[in-house]
Computed example of a mutant assay.
Amino acid sequence: MVLSLGDRVRAAIAALMQLTGESQADLAVALGVSQAQVSRRQSGSAAWPLEDCARVAAHYRIDVLDLLAGPTRACEGLPPTHPSTPVAPPFPYLCDRTCRASSAGRGPECPQG
């Protein structure tokens, strides 16, 4: 099944909002539109204008072509430095003094050596 351009844009924006933890209200503020406008556009009852697609892409710091390509490309393009991007928890095997990956402390399994 091939998605229309409008469906790809809506899916990409929904994925970006979910990944960054932003709400429709947050996105609306960033774009300078009402939450109701974002809701109508995300529900498909109104289209995302190209100018606003460019503003969405700029807000998330991705290329507008990645936004238009759909959710996978849009999310892959999201830089780790985006203010709303969740910070991944530290890996369980990273440590300061004792490595949990090695019963003897900093062993060969420990990336810190």
Rank of each mutant, 00 (worst) to 15 (best):
A46H: 04
A47M: 12
R61G: 05
Q35G: 15
E22S: 15
R10G: 05
D52Y: 13
L19I: 13
A57E: 05
S43G: 11
A69Y: 08
G6K: 07
R10Q: 13
A46Y: 02
V38H: 06
A11W: 01
S34Y: 07
R61V: 08
A46K: 04
A12V: 00
H59F: 08
P49S: 11
R8P: 05
D63C: 11
V33M: 11
Y60R: 01
R61L: 10
A69E: 11
A30M: 11
S23N: 06
A28W: 03
S45H: 09
T20V: 03
A25H: 14
D26G: 02
P49W: 10
D7S: 05
V38P: 07
C53D: 02
V38F: 04
G6F: 03
A11C: 07
A58G: 01
G6S: 11
V29M: 12
G6N: 06
D66W: 08
L27E: 04
G70L: 14
A54K: 10
V33W: 11
A36K: 12
D66K: 07
R41Q: 15
Q37S: 15
V56W: 02
V38K: 02
A30D: 05
R40V: 03
R10A: 05
A69H: 03
A28S: 09
Y60V: 00
A12M: 01
I13L: 03
